[in-house]
């Protein structure tokens, strides 16, 4: 469903991705691990067009993103990126809820303004999402009245309200106090169990083991290993994976 072919990405002179390939099937759950700065976020952000890349192709369903290295993309390019974003929801490490809107307004903003769903239907849908993540009572609160865990759950609900075909999570629990990590992961787990195509960058190795169909190990902009959780966590093939795992799993 998501095909990445020969992806090259530069940050200025820094050649981060030197031709990455990866195919992800519908309903598959792929977890990205690797040291900080290895390119996990950049990879996810390339998929939904938050970062431009200089060479290669990314296709989501049948929508193809070609390499876009121009400073000012054309209208058609922007429209293509937007179509991809409508298919792919994204959850950020920093939640990025809109602070001037209530929880409800955060969730219905894009459905009503982008998809032109009428308001009562959007509210209905939002309420059922809030029920799923167990914070329907906070519908009229503002983001800074919520705990970090609640905010991240709302951010997930906000992305789901657009009915995406796939979800990208970029270290969704890294900004959370430890006691709140569980509630967010359990929401993601529910989602995975419902069959959502899911891409997660995370440092939660236990969670990775539990939900992943495949684990992708990044290092210095390269994919150094791909495999099932058993393969990666019990018998890693490369030295670099071993060193990385030994550092995070001690």
């Amino acid at each position: 469903m998501i095909k990445v072919k020969n992806l090259h990405k530069y940050y200025g002179d820094y050649h981060l991705f030197k031709g990455i390939n990866l195919n992800i099937q519908k309903g598959e759950v792929v977890v990205f691990i690797g040291p900080s700065g290895s390119g996990k976020s950049t990879f996810l952000r390339c998929i939904n067009g938050l970062e431009y890349f200089q060479e290669g192709e990314i296709a989501v369903n049948d929508i193809e993103l070609h390499s876009i290295n121009r400073l000012r993309p054309s209208k058609e390019d922007l429209e293509t990126i937007r179509k991809v974003r409508l298919k792919v929801g994204m959850v950020f490490q920093q939640f990025n809820l809109f602070p001037h809107m209530t929880v409800m307004e955060n969730i219905i903003e894009a459905p009503t303004r982008v998809l032109n769903i009428n308001k009562s239907e959007a509210v209905e849908n939002a309420l059922s999402l809030l029920r799923r993540i167990n914070i329907e009572k906070k519908a009229n609160s503002y983001p800074d009245e919520l705990s970090g865990g609640e905010q991240q759950r709302v951010a997930i609900a906000r992305a789901l309200a657009m009915k995406p075909a796939a979800m990208l999570f970029d270290e969704p629990t890294s900004s959370l106090d430890p006691e709140m990590v569980g509630e967010v992961l359990s929401v993601i787990k529910d989602l995975v169990e419902e069959g959502m195509t899911t891409l997660i960058a995370t440092h939660e190795m236990g969670f990775a083991k539990e939900v992943a169909d495949r684990v992708v190990v990044f290092d210095k902009g390269d994919i150094i290993e791909i495999g099932t959780p058993e393969e990666i966590f019990t018998s890693p093939k490369t030295e670099r994976t071993k060193t990385f795992l030994s550092r995070v799993l001690k």
């Binding site: 974003r85 409508l86 950020f92 990025n96 809109f98 894009a110 982008v114």
Partner: peptide, 18 residues
């Protein structure tokens, strides 16, 4: 306004002007 606000909005399929 934090950069993430624009990114979150774009990732929801909003156009830049919206």
């Amino acid at each position: 306004v934090p950069k993430g606000q624009m990114e979150a909005a774009l990732s929801l399929g909003m156009t830049q002007s919206l």
